[in-house]
């Protein structure tokens, strides 16, 4: 017998939410009650987050229970999706994530903004437009387009934000 496609993922997330709820509950219980300031106990800082922690744990528990009833512990449903397309989608996603995180976490704040932006835009366009079966001329054209776009972005974005709208950039 096969399970619903999302059942196993729902079971895992349900358990994550139960854990999160308990962790929030414990952290809230341990929050200062500010008795030394003689505050009204009903205004204790941990009251509302503690209640929210309980609600999230209950909802997470309901999700986990429901997914077990839907067959999360049984064999997962065989997807009729194209395996090659799934692999390709996963590669595109990881590549996009790596480029974006590299730009935001490594380059921004350390390198000049115009340079970081130019480099990121060039790398993003060049990598995603790269095709193994392209001939040399097509490839050169694509790289030139990526370079032109990166130069335009590194000049236009700082001008638009800093000069026209007086916004500071990282």
């Amino acid at each position: 017998m096969q399970a619903r496609p999302h059942a196993r993922a729902d079971l895992i997330t349900g358990l994550v939410f139960v854990t999160l709820g308990f962790a929030v509950g414990i952290e809230s219980y341990n929050m200062p009650r500010l008795e030394e300031r003689s505050i009204d106990p009903w205004t204790a800082p941990g009251l509302v987050p503690g209640l929210l922690g309980i609600v999230i744990a209950v909802l997470g528990g309901a999700m986990a229970l429901r997914s077990i009833l839907a067959g999360a512990t049984r064999a997962s449903a065989s997807g009729d999706t194209d395996a090659a397309e799934t692999r390709s989608a996963r590669t595109r996603l990881l590549l996009c994530l790596a480029l974006c995180l590299g730009y935001a976490l490594v380059l921004v704040g350390r390198a000049p903004f115009w340079f970081a932006t130019g480099l990121f835009v060039f790398a993003f366009v060049a990598i995603f437009e790269w095709r193994l079966d392209d001939d040399r001329q097509t490839r050169a054209g694509k790289l030139a387009a990526a370079f032109a776009l990166s130069v335009a972005a590194s000049l236009a974005i700082p001008y638009l934000f800093e000069t026209l709208f007086l916004v500071r950039l990282p």
């Binding site: 730009y103 835009v121 993003f124 437009e129 934000f161 916004v167 950039l169």
Partner: peptide, 20 residues
């Protein structure tokens, strides 16, 4: 406009927006 050329610019805006 192909998404490969648009999305990096959008992400740059995503970085600027929260920082500004």
């Amino acid at each position: 406009v192909p998404r490969e050329r648009l999305m990096p610019v959008v992400f740059v805006l995503c970085v600027i927006g929260p920082y500004a």
